[in-house]
């Protein structure tokens, strides 16, 4: 006769409970993500409904239109063509609907960051000479690749100078990579308040590099100047060899700061997608690298975070004189740019 030892029952029961809890949690998250997708689709539909037939034809592209997919850049719109609808050509109600769609697609933090970047470009416009490129909140473009759907994959592209959001929606999944997040001026005053759209990432990166031990810093700091990003616009599909310090050597506190730093990019998309993405990044933390180049002062150093499913570069730019006022950054996922994991059949 087989006897089950009493001591084995609790672990088995615990496993069953754990399995049920996991299944329930996964199901709940899936449902929450599906609800979020529904909200994004509804917002997209409201925006599309506000457009004329001609405007709709300008804003819609085929999901597999590879030329439109890579039509994004850090450059002003007269130097790198964008297609879709220009915000300055929309009526106030249409513009409002476009911004509501962005708000539905992004987290609150992400939306505020994006609005901050757009407003910084407006500051550039006001300061610009007559011959300067077109800057300002009118010079941002919105387009769709594929038809908004709760089940079929589609994309929202929103961007202009210093901003390129590529948001892929595929059923319950939301993907923000690749996206270019940049700003100039990086610090400005609006309604009497100082605004730093990329302030937290600037400060957290400095906090992290200063927190490294001497041995970790020796690994992390690259002994050469980094004048620009390596995998900026035009480098889809490329993966460079990681360098710097492996974050498996990080203490719990260093890991926490690193995760907070990564969240400044991964958390731009809506909370459900951001949470799933961050869990994935956390799971790969022992195979993630952090590299730094340049002065250890806020906004003056280049840094890179690279893991199996995340690639972030932050590169202060000399143009404009003060490197702390002009920042370029790139957010990629070598395994899932444009949501290819969820859209390839």
């Amino acid at each position: 006769m087989n006897h089950i030892k009493p001591s084995r029952i609790p672990p088995l029961a615990a496993l069953c409970v754990l399995f049920l809890l996991t299944a329930w949690t996964a199901g709940s998250l899936h449902a929450a993500s599906a609800d979020q997708t529904r909200r994004i689709v509804d917002s997209a539909q409201l925006f599309l409904d506000s457009l004329s037939k001609d405007e709709r034809s300008k804003v819609m592209f085929d999901f597999n239109d590879s030329a439109q997919r890579k039509r994004w850049s850090n450059l002003p719109v007269n130097m790198a063509e964008r297609r879709g609808l220009r915000m300055g050509d929309l009526k106030a109600s249409q513009r409002d609907a476009a911004m509501k769609l962005l708000a539905a697609s992004l987290s609150r933090m992400g939306y505020e960051k994006v609005v901050g970047i757009v407003e910084s470009d407006e500051v550039l416009r006001k300061e610009a000479s007559r011959n300067a490129p077109p800057f300002g909140r009118d010079e941002f473009f919105i387009s769709f690749m594929g038809k908004p759907s709760v089940s079929e994959p589609w994309m929202i592209q929103f961007g202009g100078h210093h901003l390129a959001l590529n948001i892929t929606v595929a059923g319950p999944h939301g993907v923000l990579t690749p996206s270019l997040i940049a700003v100039q001026p990086a610090r400005f005053t609006m309604d009497g308040k100082t605004v730093r759209p990329m302030g937290r990432e600037t400060d957290k990166a400095l906090e992290l590099v200063k927190m490294l031990s001497e041995a970790q810093r020796k690994e992390a700091v690259l002994g050469s100047q980094m004048r620009d990003m390596v995998l900026g616009p035009g480098h889809d599909g490329e993966t460079i060899q990681p360098e710097g310090v492996k974050t498996s050597s990080f203490t719990e506190t260093q890991r926490r700061i690193l995760i907070e730093l990564i969240s400044e990019w991964s958390g731009i998309i809506h909370d459900e997608a951001a949470s799933a993405k961050l869990d994935e990044i956390r799971g790969n933390l022992n195979d993630t690298w952090f590299a730094w180049s340049g002065p250890m002062e806020a906004g003056k150093g280049y840094f890179r975070i690279q893991g199996p499913t995340v690639f972030i570069e932050y590169a202060p730019q000399r143009l404009g004189g003060d490197v702390t006022m002009h920042i370029h950054s790139m957010y990629r996922d070598p395994t899932n740019d444009y949501g290819k994991k969820f859209t390839t059949r």
Binding site: L75, P76, S129, P133, F135, H161, R227, L319, G320
Partner: peptide, 15 residues
Amino acid sequence: GIVLAVAAHRLDECL
């Protein structure tokens, strides 16, 4: 100074 401040492309160096 203004031109430098608002220029948006590479200026005085070849990358």
